[in-house]
């Protein structure tokens, strides 16, 4: 993995930037203590073109984040497993926004991704949307390591912060009855407060919009919906794997 990361970086880093990174990682590997690691991990953001986008392993990174992944992998290579977990956890505790985003995307490439489960769960409780989405979107971490409780909270939080569910990997596979109850209660609360449902609430039902409570919601909310929202309901009803009432079929022309 480490060679693969460096190969991608090599193509975009300028010669001085590459030399800087190699120098830093040599210090991290050879010096005692963690000062070199902490400083290098932060200082990456001060290198030229830190924001330049780079494609890596099928997703979009930038020069800064990928250099940070390289630093973590180099640190891992030269230190004992326990020390790696302890130190990276410490870095997660005090990361700034971009560092936290990078860590969330990086855990999957470390040797013990599950050791950082609590950190990733914490990132899913944030109200800072880019941090939340670094876990939720295009990241295999939740589907691999979250239990059902963690998974369901992730989905609810996505709707809460008005993020989209579509880039969540394996959303449909991990749909479960308990999640549906949570989604239904969430919708009932919103409707009681006369607030709209999040855009992806109907998509969230997968093929289970035949649930009696979901049908009830579709019926009660109809008058408040815009045409495009009605189309979302219609999509969900069409996908339903169980029978839909005649009334709903007429209402949404299913």
């Amino acid at each position: 993995m480490i060679d693969k990361v460096f190969e991608v970086l090599e193509k975009t880093l300028s010669t001085p930037a590459k030399e800087w990174l190699v120098d830093q990682t040599n210090s991290i590997a050879n010096l005692r203590g963690t000062k070199a690691l902490f400083l290098a991990f932060s200082l990456v953001s001060r290198q030229p073109n830190a924001n330049q986008e780079i494609e890596f392993d099928g997703s979009i990174w930038n020069q800064e984040a990928l250099s940070r992944l390289y630093i973590l992998l180099k640190f891992q290579e030269s230190h004992l497993a326990d020390e790696v977990i302890r130190t990276i956890s410490l870095m997660a505790d005090t990361s700034d926004i971009n560092e936290e985003i990078c860590l969330n995307k990086s855990y999957q490439y470390l040797t013990t991704p599950e050791a950082y489960l609590a950190k990733v769960r914490e990132s899913c409780r944030t109200n800072v949307v880019p941090i939340f989405e670094s876990v939720a979107h295009g990241n295999p971490y939740p589907v691999r390591y979250f239990d059902e409780e963690g998974w369901n909270q992730l989905i609810l939080k996505a709707l809460f912060v008005d993020s989209t569910l579509r880039p969540i990997l394996s959303y449909k596979d991990r749909f479960n009855a308990d999640l549906q109850i949570m989604l239904i209660h969430f919708a009932e609360e919103r409707m009681a407060a006369d607030r709209p449902l999040p855009a992806d609430w109907w998509y969230a039902q997968v093929d289970k919009a035949g649930h009696p409570d979901v049908q009830k919601i579709a019926l009660n909310i109809h008058d408040r919906l815009s045409e495009s929202e009605k189309a979302d309901v219609r999509q969900a009803l069409l996908a339903a794997g169980s029978p839909i009432s005649e009334e709903l079929k007429q209402l949404y022309t299913v």
Binding site: T34, K35, F38, L39, S42, L43, S45, R46, L90, M91, T94, D96, N98, E99
Partner: peptide, 9 residues
């Protein structure tokens, strides 16, 4: 301090 002083901003 080394964990913080070189962070962005």
């Amino acid at each position: 301090l080394p964990r913080f002083i070189c962070k962005e901003k």
